[in-house]
Simulated assay, not measured.
Amino acid sequence: MPTSFEWLTTAPIKIRPFKPKYHLTMGLENMPLSELIQMDKTYADRIQLRRNLISEHPTSTRQCNPCAEKAVAELYEWIISTYLPKRFPSTYKLTSAETGSGLRNLVTDKLIPLQAPSSIDALELLGENVDTDFLVLLPSSKAADGSPVYHLEAFVTCFPSGFSTREKCGKPLAAIHNPVPGYASKLERSMDRFFARLEVGKAVKRVNWSITTNDRLFSESGNHMYSDEEPPKPAENAKTLDASGPNIEDEIAKQKLEVVVEDCRLRCERQTLHRLPNTNALVFAFKTYLYKLSEVKDEGLGPALADAVDGLGTGSVPDMAFYKRGVVWGEKVKEYLRS
């Protein structure tokens, strides 16, 4: 099991997410399917948190549109019956008919059915037993040239970072990424083409990073700021600002005063993408890692992360510094990381 930053600096991920300038690219790397799910020493605590979140936010953490029911069943049966017991036999064990057929989670001592009663049950069981969020995408429409357009049709997400997965369900990739600066001009076409041609048996991964001013893993808003005319309606914990609104500089100054470095976290996502063989659905999955900034410094990565914060506004999409709220937390975080 990896310790703190091992997953960032050694195999299986062979890249660091910190670069001196932020360039909006897919940044994909091939990987074997055996590396789809990662385990670490936080598993027991994370699983308990995920169960609590699913209970507290049932409609926000999982949803399945009718068109995705077969894909969800395929994903569930492969993960539960094949992937988990073969990849992590010390955590998941198939049981015999005599003791009740299913997959025994040896950490929680829960018996997981090999076939779920419904799609929602399948998503809930995945969410409660795997520390990974899963999103199922299907080619639900076509572009003007006849190429497939992928839509989010099902999900179980316990750790959204500044967005509501429920509100994005059913939408195409372009609409899902609409708030992201530079997506339409720099990524949309290449992502659509890549999604359409990804073959069964092939899997890819990437890593991203952000800084949050709190330690909440479940965060449907508040981690981004928006420059469009109609920003998402903020929740109670939101720090959302509209760049076109009045007194924007005063609002940013006010939020800067609220930043407490000790509360800030480095939030990283290990993202993967692969295609299911029978339904041909795409599965986008991500595992979220959260670190105190003191842990970053202890690993000797403080200056590199500080340079990367500077680079948010000097790369290919300068608006990223606003979108990621770097204009709010940047000064205090950089000072701390370089001290």
Score class of each variant (00 low, 15 high):
Pro2Asn: 09
Phe5Lys: 02
Glu6Trp: 01
Leu8Ser: 02
Leu8Arg: 04
Thr9Phe: 10
Thr10Ala: 09
Glu35His: 04
Ile37Lys: 03
Asp45Gly: 12
Arg46Gln: 15
Arg51Glu: 14
Ile54Tyr: 11
Ser55Ala: 15
Ser55His: 14
Thr59Cys: 15
Ser60Pro: 11
Ser60Thr: 15
Arg62Leu: 15
Cys64His: 08
Leu75His: 11
Trp78Tyr: 15
Thr82Phe: 07
Arg87Gln: 14
Phe88Thr: 08
Tyr92Asp: 07
Tyr92Phe: 12
Ser96Asn: 15
Ala97Arg: 13
Ala97Thr: 13
Val107Thr: 09
Val107Asp: 08
Lys110His: 09
Lys110Ser: 09
Leu111Glu: 10
Leu111Gln: 11
Ile112Arg: 01
Pro113Tyr: 00
Pro113Arg: 00
Leu114Asp: 01
Leu114Met: 04
Ser118Thr: 14
Leu123Ile: 12
Gly127Glu: 06
Asp131Ser: 04
Thr132Ile: 14
Asp133Ile: 08
Leu135Ala: 15
Val136Phe: 13
Ser140Met: 10
Ala144Ile: 12
Asp145Ser: 13
Val149His: 08
Ala154Ser: 12
Val156Gly: 07
Thr157Leu: 09
Ser161Lys: 04
Arg166Gln: 15
Lys168Asn: 11
Lys168Tyr: 10
Asn178Asp: 11
Pro179Trp: 04
Met191Pro: 00
Met191Trp: 01
Phe194Ile: 09
Phe195Trp: 04
Arg197Pro: 00
Leu198Trp: 05
Val200Pro: 08
Gly201Leu: 09
Asn208Thr: 13
Asn214Asp: 14
Ser219Trp: 04
Ser219Ile: 07
Glu220Ala: 03
Met225Lys: 07
Pro231Arg: 08
Pro234Thr: 11
Asn237Gly: 00
Thr240Met: 00
Leu241Phe: 00
Ala243Asp: 02
Asn247His: 13
Ile252Ala: 05
Val260Leu: 14
Arg265Thr: 06
Arg267Pro: 02
Glu269Gln: 11
Leu282Met: 12
Ala285Arg: 05
Tyr289Asn: 03
Leu293Trp: 04
Glu295Leu: 05
Glu295Phe: 02
Lys297Gln: 06
Glu299His: 13
Gly300Thr: 12
Ala308Lys: 02
Ser316Pro: 01
Val317Cys: 02
Asp319Ile: 07
Asp319Ala: 10
Val328Cys: 06
Trp329Thr: 05
Gly330Leu: 06
Val333Leu: 03
Val333His: 01
Leu337Cys: 07
